[in-house]
């Protein structure tokens, strides 16, 4: 599909990784980061009309919109954003398994936000001086710092709120903990990142919030026991296929159409 005027004018960035003189691995990295943002944005958007309080409808939509904006810049660095979002098969997506996990209850969503936004913040900070991703990272890190703050504020309130909220928040963290290790497997094209240091910062930050929230740092493993790999290798969890089916259905039903 050739990009229509619609999609090119809509894309926030027109510079491609190739145009920036970056190696092919930059495209791989742009896809990995772009897919993370795209998929998490989609999950958060599923909250529309279902949030626990009106103020939170607005907050969750803000985060989802920030992420979608990031996704559009990143995917456009690789290729046409819509072609990538709507016409790839499940196995071609390289997002983390963490971001594709269904919303669950509000605590589950907040746990996912805490684990991911803390990672994303430190990652973008590490990419600040990167020739390819630096400009995006500089803008996105401000947005993500706010996402992290939102997640922390809610983790503290749910953890140290009522017995029920404490139990739900702990359950959310316990369930998602096993998806957190994957975030620190090096991504080709992001050579500026020291992954061990990133992981150490992440652990210290997340652990501190969990403890302040009177919760317990989960004891389970931080990796799934599957030698084939995980999201970055295009291996996803079952709910992801359904999510993509819903997301891509209309676009695929009208091949070549403009929207």
């Amino acid at each position: 599909m050739t990009p229509t005027p619609e999609t090119t004018t809509g894309a926030p960035a027109t510079a491609t990784a190739a145009a920036a003189g970056a190696p092919a691995t930059a495209t791989t990295a742009a896809l990995a980061l772009g897919d993370d943002a795209l998929v998490l944005s989609h999950r958060l958007a599923e909250w529309a009309g279902h949030a626990p309080v009106l103020e939170e409808e607005v907050a969750l939509a803000n985060i989802a919109l920030d992420l979608l904006g990031q996704a559009r810049v990143l995917l456009s660095m690789a290729r046409d954003e819509d072609e990538l979002a709507y016409l790839r098969e499940e196995r071609a997506f390289t997002n983390l398994q963490l971001v594709e996990q269904p919303n669950g209850d509000f605590a589950h969503t907040i746990a996912r936000q805490l684990l991911f936004s803390t990672y994303q913040r430190f990652l973008y900070e590490a990419l600040a001086g990167d020739p390819v991703f630096g400009p995006l990272a500089a803008k996105a890190v401000k947005e993500v710092a706010y996402h992290q703050d939102h997640a922390e504020q809610w983790t503290l309130r749910l953890g140290d709120g009522t017995d029920e909220s404490h139990r739900r928040m702990q359950r959310g963290l316990d369930a998602l903990w096993r998806y957190s290790g994957e975030m620190f497997r090096p991504v080709a094209g992001l050579e500026a990142v020291n992954w061990q240091e990133l992981e150490a910062r992440w652990l210290a930050s997340v652990n501190a919030v969990i403890e302040r929230a009177t919760l317990t740092v989960p004891e389970g493993p931080r990796h799934g026991a599957w030698a084939a790999g995980a999201g970055r290798q295009g291996l996803h969890t079952e709910p992801f296929g359904r999510m993509l089916a819903e997301m891509q259905h209309l676009h695929r039903s009208h091949p070549g159409a403009s929207w």
Partner: peptide, 26 residues
């Protein structure tokens, strides 16, 4: 229709619009 919006541009617009409606309710 947010989760089925056929382009990312349309998806962003629709999300912002539905968000506005929550804001207007407020």
């Amino acid at each position: 229709w947010i989760t089925r919006a056929p382009s990312l541009r349309r998806k962003a617009i629709l999300m912002a619009k539905v968000q506005d409606e929550a804001g207007h309710g407020l």
